[in-house]
Design a protein around this nucleic acid. Structure first.
Length: 272
DNA sequence: AGTGCGACCCGAACGC
DNA sequence: TGCGTTCGGGTCGCAC
């Protein structure tokens, strides 16, 4: 389940490995993954090269000379670098072959990820990018900004933190961790949060995401073999997936509940 | 407009 | 053991 820290780690890793290599072949083994015109996808990429990789929220933005390739990993999307003559394995859905006989392979067990190839001039009109809110690292992300965004939301704060139009890039794991940091009950209605609580959320997302990026994310240890990246943030998790274990602050048992259909972990004592 | 929920997927975990 | 069932998780789209 890649969230912003995972996506940023992938971006930084791929930048070192695939830039400025001519694309000699593209295989689309699962066409539904391509949201743009699948018939021109391959044609538009051939003989071009990736010249930069950017990111907005959880979207990876591969820059080419005339296009951008947008890629969302959703839950299980991964990029692997392999030799072109390596056997294609199960769950490899999109394969870019470079002139130097290496491949960038998109692997996704659940086929949830999406790619979209757009012309450069379209970049400002792409809905999924336009609606992204502020990144946890953005200076403009303040307690006041959050309180303003929260004020009409009757939903639990846990659900609202997953809304990418407010804070861009938080997923289930970090939403749980941020609320623990801020000592806020995940069921509390977002509109009822005080300015102090909003400030804590701002502070928590900034610190937690910064740390997670530094550690290479949480869940991507499967990258080790090909990209040399291990998600070490797992060791820093305080409540996520810790049901039944003891709260690191007060030793109360961590509880697991469902909010909006999503697993939510919290300390019933610290987060009243 | 805001909210709720099923659909998309398939492997892992679970229940019997 | 082996089968069938449930679960998870980000996002979209549809219904209310």
């Amino acid at each position: 389940m890649p969230e912003i820290a995972e996506v940023e780690t992938v971006r930084q890793t791929l930048i070192k490995q695939i830039l400025n290599k001519k694309i000699k072949d593209v295989k689309v083994l699962y066409p539904k993954m391509i949201e743009s015109d699948a018939s021109t996808f391959k044609k538009d990429l051939l003989n071009d090269e990736f010249i930069d990789i950017k990111r907005k929220g959880k979207w990876l933005i591969f820059e080419l000379h005339n296009h951008y390739l947008l890629s969302h990993l959703r839950m299980e999307g991964k990029f692997f670098l392999k030799n072109s003559n390596d056997e294609i394995v199960k769950h490899e859905h999109i394969i870019f072959t470079f002139a130097d006989q290496t491949d960038l392979r998109y692997h996704d067990t659940r086929k949830f990820g999406r790619m979209n190839l757009i012309k450069k001039e379209e970049i400002d009109n792409i809905e999924c990018l336009k609606k992204q809110g502020l990144e946890p690292q953005d200076k403009a992300l303040t307690g006041l900004y959050l309180q303003e965004k929260f004020k009409n939301k009757k939903l639990p704060i846990k659900t609202v933190l997953l809304d990418q139009t407010i804070i861009s890039g938080l997923g289930n794991i970090y939403a749980n961790e941020v609320l623990f940091y801020a000592q806020i009950n995940p069921l509390k209605k977002a509109s009822l949060l005080t300015i102090e609580e909003c400030n804590k959320i701002k502070e928590g997302s900034n610190l937690i995401i910064k740390e997670a990026i530094k550690m290479g994310g949480t869940t991507i240890k499967s990258y080790t073999s090909s990209l040399g990246v291990t998600g070490r943030f797992q060791t820093k998790l305080k409540v996520h997936k810790k049901e039944g274990q003891l709260c690191p602050i007060c030793n109360t048992k961590i509880k697991k509940i469902k909010i909006g259909g999503r697993s939510t972990y919290y300390c019933p004592n610290c987060q009243k």
